[in-house]
């Protein structure tokens, strides 16, 4: 099916702000993984930050940070996929964004903060019944051991 091949890792060339139109190529996705050779990409790209800073993802380390226990099979399965996507993210390194202000979110008319006055939540029982392990008045968890 015709999904857009907007995955421009094949040619991670420097792109000027006035011409970062990409050409959609017909063969982008299928041949895409072949193009991901970390050495090649770090050598070819001109990062605005030091490329040495951007090390490829270390999956077990990330999993530990994110508190998700992965099996070795999962590490093996996820690693190439995550690297592929992160390498694809890398195309933004080639765009000159120097004078552009970052936008935290879309323009909104929000920020209608209410006064910081505590309100009693009506359905306390339902809140507590959702807690897997509860002993009035505490939520119970196992011992906190700091391995580090």
């Amino acid at each position: 099916m015709g999904s857009i091949k907007a995955l421009h890792l094949l040619k991670p060339a420097r792109i000027a702000t006035d011409s970062f139109l990409f050409n959609f190529t017909k063969n982008g996705i299928s041949s895409f993984p072949l193009a991901i050779k970390p050495k090649h990409s770090t050598a070819q790209r001109s990062y605005s930050v030091k490329s040495s800073v951007l090390e490829p993802p270390n999956i077990p380390r990330l999993a530990q940070t994110a508190r998700i226990s992965l099996t070795p099979q999962e590490v093996e399965e996820f690693a190439p996929k995550i690297r592929q996507v992160i390498d694809w993210f890398g195309q933004l390194q080639a765009v000159d964004l120097q004078s552009i202000e970052p936008a935290i979110r879309a323009d909104t008319e929000g920020d209608n903060l209410r006064d910081d006055i505590p309100e009693k939540f009506e359905n306390r029982e339902a809140l507590i019944s959702a807690v897997p392990s509860f002993e009035e008045p505490y939520i119970k968890v196992p011992k906190v051991l700091n391995k580090e």
Binding site: V53, L92, Q93, L97, E101, P102, A103, I104, A106
Partner: peptide, 15 residues
């Protein structure tokens, strides 16, 4: 800076 901030800058361009 390399990822999240750049993406937010792109959001400005898109907007």
């Amino acid at each position: 800076d390399a990822y999240y901030k750049r993406a937010q800058q792109v959001r400005t361009l898109v907007r």
